[in-house]
């Protein structure tokens, strides 16, 4: 049986098969398309999801975002983990 994913600094997140990031032009928003569901992404969520390439670890993503947005690293790391854990529980992020 598959085990639930726990996201931590070492996790390497990616979008699983059946989940797609797409720009929704008519409504001018970014969305994650998933089986019979969709999630509208705000700016922060979008930046995080874009980093989920199956190569970067959560730690690397936190480093990168904290540098780019000049925000304290621990806060960024915490936010990244909360968001990705929520998406993992919903089945739209794998690690």
């Amino acid at each position: 049986m598959a085990a639930a994913v726990t996201i931590g600094e070492a996790s390497v997140p990616h979008l699983p098969r059946g989940v797609r990031l797409k720009f929704d032009k008519p409504r001018d928003q970014w969305v994650l398309l998933a089986p019979e569901r969709m999630f509208v992404l705000d700016d922060i969520a979008l930046e995080i999801v874009k980093c989920c390439d199956g190569k970067a670890s959560v730690a690397a993503i936190a480093d990168d975002l904290s540098a780019r947005f000049e925000a304290p690293r621990d806060t960024v790391a915490k936010d990244v983990i909360i968001l990705l854990q929520d998406f993992a529980d919903k089945g739209v992020v794998a690690a």
């Binding site: 049986m1 598959a2 085990a3 639930a4 994913v5 019979e36 993992a88 529980d89 919903k90 089945g91």
Partner: peptide, 9 residues
């Protein structure tokens, strides 16, 4: 019980 394994609708 199945959080993270099976999403329920």
């Amino acid at each position: 019980r199945l959080k993270g394994i099976l999403v329920f609708d």
